[in-house]
Design a protein around this nucleic acid. Structure first.
Lengths: 219, 219
DNA sequence: CGGAATCCTCTTCGATACTG
DNA sequence: CAGTATCGAAGAGGATTCCG
């Protein structure tokens, strides 16, 4: 566990001493999605190299950004999850996402893309003020290109978790392009439904409001 | 000019492909203070190595984060300044500052510290809402430990520039510890003045409001 | 003299093979 | 499965040299 430092008495340099090394913030991104096992991280962070991942995890655990999840009885796999200190990096990730999205462009053939990453990015464009104002209080299941998730909005807060919720306010199905258009206010639910590009079960009004609680930019 | 990429179709990874390499965000920090020449950057970023700095500058210029400043007649020195795209990284820097300040601690003897860095950090703790509410509209000169600067507050905006302003609303002098205590609301102007730790010329009320427009945390 | 390019050494990265 | 060990390649950092 090496320690290369900028040796500057400066908050920015301090932050970068801790999270500025290669891969570190991408590990944080993975764990913002949820706890992950070593092999999941290694699989989703293609190119990291097993020794480097081990080094980073050790370093991040030492810094108390992450912690090992004690495996439940019968499950031998060790997992990693964010500590509260690590979770406090979410605003940093969000700002980087907001800045970086303008360079996203079209996906190159050799680039990886996981649906979870889209959700991490989407969260950065949530409008808490708007959500509060509309008094949306809902749990919405989303399915897109075979990937399902659910989003819970209450007051100013948004939580996104993998898989289905049990008693959703509504269930929304559509491909990624359509959902992107909806989250970026380029398309309305009405239009998408009319064209048969979107299906909504349950409370249509909540679904409509949900999309309006985001403002995903397009470039 | 190398290009190592995470090869992920993800806004965060894109951002990190551009500004995630060693030194890049510290160069941004330097240029957030104001335009700088090559030698200034090299002097203030101790340890960077002349080739690496040249590489980074070229890379950042190529990415249009920075641009060369055409030297004025009679001045041969080329300078660098942020483009608007580069300036858009200020929120990212601010978030990193807000997160990193908890690790700042006490200055180690071998650590560098430039007063400009403190100002970059301070900006991250400006309360625009409060500034607007108090209707503070002032230009305040600040002098601390031989370093002088001026801060202009108007509406929700704050600008900090080096050197004196010509017709300041007020002029504030005190050492760094005192100013830190004032900006973190641990001390009031009244108390500091009474103890002879602070001198204010000009509009006392604006000075008082100015400090209240910040909330620097202490750890 | 300031702004780099070159050179050289050392560290880190990344891929693969290996181990408890 | 969760890491270690190893090793060539790439990047970082310092000194020196070159160029305008």
């Amino acid at each position: 566990m090496s320690r290369r430092s900028y040796n500057q008495y400066c908050s920015l340099a301090r932050a970068l001493d801790i999270v500025g090394e290669r891969w570190t913030l991408l590990v944080i991104r993975e764990l913002l999605i949820g706890p992950r096992r070593y092999r999941d991280l290694h699989k989703n962070l293609k190119g990291i190299g097993t020794n480097l991942l081990a080094d980073r995890l050790k370093e991040m655990e030492f810094r108390e950004l992450i912690e090992k999840v004690i495996p439940k009885q019968g499950n031998k796999s060790v997992g990693y999850r964010l500590t509260s200190l690590g979770r406090e990096l979410e605003p940093v990730v969000n700002e980087l996402v907001r800045w970086g999205i303008q360079f996203l462009g079209v996906k190159k053939p050799d680039e990886l893309n996981r649906p979870e990453w889209d959700l991490v990015a989407l969260k950065a464009f949530f409008l808490p003020g708007f959500a509060k104002k509309t008094r949306l209080h809902a749990i919405c299941n989303l399915e897109s290109d075979g990937f399902s998730t659910h989003m819970a909005v209450k007051g100013e807060s948004l939580t996104i978790n993998p898989g289905w919720a049990e008693n959703p306010t509504c269930t929304i199905k559509g491909n990624k392009d359509i959902l992107t258009a909806l989250f970026s206010q380029e398309l309305t639910v009405k239009e998408a439904e009319r064209d048969g590009l979107l299906t909504i079960e349950g409370d249509r009004k909540s679904a409509d409001k949900l999309f309006q609680c985001f403002l995903l930019p397009r470039f």
